[in-house]
Design a protein around this nucleic acid. Structure first.
Lengths: 273, 273
DNA sequence: CCGGGGTTCTCATTGAATGAGAAACGTGTT
DNA sequence: AACACGTTTCTCATTCAATGAGAACCCCGG
């Protein structure tokens, strides 16, 4: 905690500043940031100026702030950007060339899918996904695939929460979602017609790393009418295998005692923070 | 300045922590970070833990830290990632399909080119470029294009500094660089055989935004032998125009009062980008 | 058994971060 | 011109979070 009355550290506040930038709001004034981040103007102003000095924010001509290239550059070093994306990209391109529809790559982040990459078809169905965008796991094809291979805790956690309905076809009954999940485990893919948008159908398959763990999902978004899912699924499965192979080759310089399921001899559940 | 003896703010130190992660060093131990960022271990430890709690860093099983998905997600909101990349991506794909070589997109950052995107040919020449990686402007084709359209100050600044020699063919004489720059302004493209690597040849053209400003460069990396540059240049020029057109269309979507807590009526054009 | 890495925690000190407040600055309205 | 409104920008006394030395701890290899 910092000197703040609101009781959070400088870093926490800086993060709130960044979080003020939504995907569709790339430029904000100092006061807008203050409002969105729940900070006193003076503080927001000081912070943004400092961040701008460091290059993490940029200042446009009209005085508004935007997220800076510098930050992007640092983020390019993130695992997700380096390992996964790099392995997936060429394969994704091939896939995109084959099925001429939107194709995308997503990972599980919290209780949502975070989309890492997307290649869009020029005149294909609408697709709400954006790179860096999120969708709830229960409604998106990639999300359901990831949920199916997630821990039991996460599954119950998600199913317990309210499940947003996008269309009349969105599965919002826990029972339904459970059935879909079971189907995925059995068949290895999922087809989601109209779950998010009436005209769009998501199709997705899991992507495994070298150890066989599901680390991501790739999917296609196609028109509900006029598409035989079974023309797409094999392509997705092939692509998935291709990515897994590439991931295997990427093998991080294995740390010694690599797989270490149990946290080593911790002495105690250390007093709560 | 913070309570630190080294005399910099928390944010500055946090940035140093992030900077400790090089492109080829994606995972670091706490003490490694301390060393690289010139911080006392205790401080580095405290900072990294806090950053990890915020999700900006992630902790691997072996205790090492890596850059977190959260950070990547925020960075995806950066202008460069949204506007430019989005406009360029489809065109870049087409280009890549046409000339079957590495193609890449770079912007000017400080005195270097920062590469935003790259599509690589599977068995093409080696290419030192990485997404999120940098190259000096005087040695890379994209860099020279950007330098040619940069301010006179930057040009002299760059030419004043020492110009690293990668190969015997790297232009390190200010006079040479100036001549190359002049050529670019006249012809609208540049061909760089063996400037960075003996076997590779860079070819690049500028990309302009709606206002005609040069905002980026796209290039291809091809084998020195067996390539007629003139087979590639037209494709690059076409692609460049395609991106410019897409950039024009990318006028910031005017947000309806959408999710705003206080939907106050006023929201006006706000000129410019 | 020891020595050399790493990690983790504690704690007194202190100066950077804080935020209210006011001034300066547009910009549109009366 | 004067006003109202929202913004940006600065100042400044207060104060508490950040600091880093140090020590304990853990793990490994010789």
């Amino acid at each position: 905690m910092a000197n703040s009355s609101s009781g959070d550290s400088v870093l926490g506040r800086a993060l709130r500043v960044f979080d003020a930038f939504e995907l569709d709001k790339p430029a904000l004034t100092a006061s807008e940031i203050a409002r969105r981040a729940c900070l006193p103007v003076a503080t927001a102003y000081r912070l943004t100026c400092e961040l701008a000095e460091l290059g993490l924010l940029e200042r446009a001509v009209d005085g508004r702030f935007r997220v800076g290239v510098r930050l992007w550059e640092i983020a390019a070093r993130a695992q997700v950007a380096r390992g996964l994306r790099e392995a997936a990209m060429p394969v994704l391109e091939d896939l995109h060339a084959a099925v001429k529809e939107h194709v995308q790559l997503g990972v599980l982040e919290g209780r949502e899918v975070l989309f890492i990459e997307r290649l869009s078809a020029r005149n294909a169905v609408i697709n709400v996904t954006q790179i860096g965008g999120r969708l709830p796991v229960h409604a998106s094809s990639a999300g359901l695939v990831l949920l199916a291979h997630a821990s039991a805790e996460l599954q119950t956690e998600v199913l317990a929460g309210p499940l947003r309905r996008y269309t009349p076809d969105t599965p919002v009954q826990p029972r339904n979602v459970r059935r879909i999940i079971a189907g995925i485990k059995q068949q290895g893919y999922v087809v989601c017609p109209g779950y998010i948008h009436a005209d769009a159908m998501g199709i997705a398959v899991p992507v495994r790393d070298a150890c066989g763990e599901v680390v991501a999902a790739i999917g296609a978004v196609v028109p509900v009418r006029g598409t035989q899912p079974m023309n797409v699924v094999p392509a997705l499965l092939t692509a998935s295998r291709g990515i897994s192979r590439a991931l295997g080759a990427t093998a991080d310089p294995q740390p010694r005692g690599a797989v270490d399921p149990q946290p080593r001899g911790r002495r105690e559940p250390t007093a709560a923070v």
